[in-house]
Design a protein around this nucleic acid. Structure first.
Lengths: 223, 223
DNA sequence: ACACTATCGATAGTTACACTATCAGCATGC
DNA sequence: GCATGCTGATAGTGTAACTATCGATAGTGT
């Protein structure tokens, strides 16, 4: 197919397709003449992956490129795939305090978690604890319960990876699962938070059923 | 204190302080003459909050402004605070398919979650499911387990809110907890994922203890 | 009294990112 | 035989988040 068809089927403009190709995220199509290049289904799939990582996952184009390079790399092992996906979320972490790091390590000991020293989650979690401390928000009580919940999540993640067939598909599952999993969890957390709030602070919404269509909307205005 | 001292104590440049004041994130100091303005401890705390929301939480300056306006608003109720914080993470969600929304609703029914129709978590989670479907990643098995874990997290969140004293502090806990909580969970998930990977696929790392300093580093190169 | 430094608000400039538009040359279909 | 659409290369655009400069002026040390 030509670039216009590829554009229509993915919703990505031809100019952006060229841009992604230039940046190495999308392999070039097969040149079939001076002014014709043939794209196939693999380009459609790749483009959808790119948009999922960028739009939904919130990655930059450069980070998406690294993630995709990891997926394409034929001999990459699970450890490397994890590492690249873990590092892909762009966040300039301020160096955390040693007390915050010790708090994280305490949680790790409690739950029997062991990692290599440079796991990016450790400074990330620790810097959040620092921020929470300076903003007078005390989450020390929630930390072990978060960790308990995360154990369930990580176990589910690994099961999904194990169930994903061959090595190639496994790598993609790892990478996509890490990036999009964070967003999925954030969405579920928003739903659950609202539900739990209603349950605690008012009886207006009946637990166990979704909002009925046509029912009066409880609106929330943003100022 | 003057702007230079405020800058030193927070690590934010005077130019940026002025910028945040212009954008309404930071209240202006008390003008004490043509070329002198007095800032106090509240400005220090506010600036730290701003940087936590922007740097760690990944909010834009505009979104941080809305969140801060919610915290400042004296008569805001919990529902509104939740709503504003929930909407603050900037992500242009593509309209999800109805099947994805139904998947989310099924999870909600299963767990007894009830929300108003416009909870932003629903389209967010649903659009992730759409992305996962088009990238051939099957997470249907993990969804109920994610939901189970999220129930624990949301319960802990609400406990933290309830424990946070007066109304003003409660609002700040809600808002900061939602925004930074996502990042904290992402960090813990990365740690747990690596730990679970080691436990499953190799016996090299002993569970139950953190990485020893001085031990040979298992490096991960990024290409 | 007087140089010196720091501050003020206003405004213009900068950097990074992610596109987007234009261009000259050329092939293909009607 | 010519309008349409495609090609890669390159330059331009728009937005976000700062950052630098400026003229006026006020406090500080000597």
């Amino acid at each position: 197919m030509r670039i216009s068809e590829l554009s229509e089927r993915t919703g990505v403009s031809p100019a952006s397709i060229k841009y992604y190709t230039r940046e190495g995220l999308l392999p070039a199509g097969e040149r079939t003449g001076y002014n014709s290049t043939a794209y196939d289904e693999s380009h459609v799939a790749r483009l959808r992956l790119i948009r999922a990582l960028i739009d939904t996952g919130g990655l930059t184009v450069a980070a998406a490129g690294e993630v995709i390079a990891a997926i394409d790399s034929p001999d990459i092992d699970l450890d490397h795939a994890f590492g690249i996906a873990q590092r892909s979320v762009p966040r300039d972490v301020t160096p955390p305090s040693s007390t915050a790091i010790e708090q994280v390590r305490a949680v790790m000991r409690e739950r029997g978690w062991a990692t290599v020293a440079d796991n990016p989650g450790i400074p990330l979690a620790a810097s959040v604890l620092d921020d929470l401390a300076t903003t007078r928000t005390d989450l020390s009580a929630v930390l072990p319960r978060y960790a308990e919940a995360i154990d369930i999540i990580a176990e589910a993640d690994l099961d999904a990876v194990a169930a994903s067939g061959d090595r190639d598909q496994m790598t993609e599952t790892v990478v996509v699962g890490i990036v999009l999993g964070d967003v999925l969890l954030a969405g579920l957390r928003r739903i659950a938070q609202e539900s739990h709030t209603h349950r605690r602070y008012r009886g207006g919404v009946v637990p166990g059923q979704a909002h009925e269509p046509g029912q009066a909307n409880e609106t929330r205005e943003l100022t």
